[in-house]
Amino acid sequence: MELQVYGYKCRKCGQLHYPFRMVCKKCKANEPHGFDPVPLPKKGKLLTYTDLSTLPADFNVAQLTLGIVELENGIRVTGQVRIPKPKTGMAVRINIETVRSSEFGKNLGMVFTAA
């Protein structure tokens, strides 16, 4: 099964959110379970990025590139960039991979590669 990251669509007004929130930021609908999970698109463009050298201690790499991507549907997400020489505005593909791991567990998240 292909892994997905989900956005959350308001059942009342259709506004899509990422990450999850309890009350719709557009229509303020506050019914419990008021959002439907919707898979986020796997394509987008890179808005901005940075090569970071001050990583938390549990990353055992010296440097990591992080970026913000605007997906095809306008939703923006933060994730890791795996592109040797990224450029703002470039088209990227979103992959779901392990982004952080510790002795006892791992976190899946978005990794951006060149489209």
Partner: peptide
């Protein structure tokens, strides 16, 4: 915690 921190965002 889920949309930023896990990626190593500081």
């Amino acid at each position: 915690p889920l949309a930023e921190y896990i990626y190593g965002v500081t």
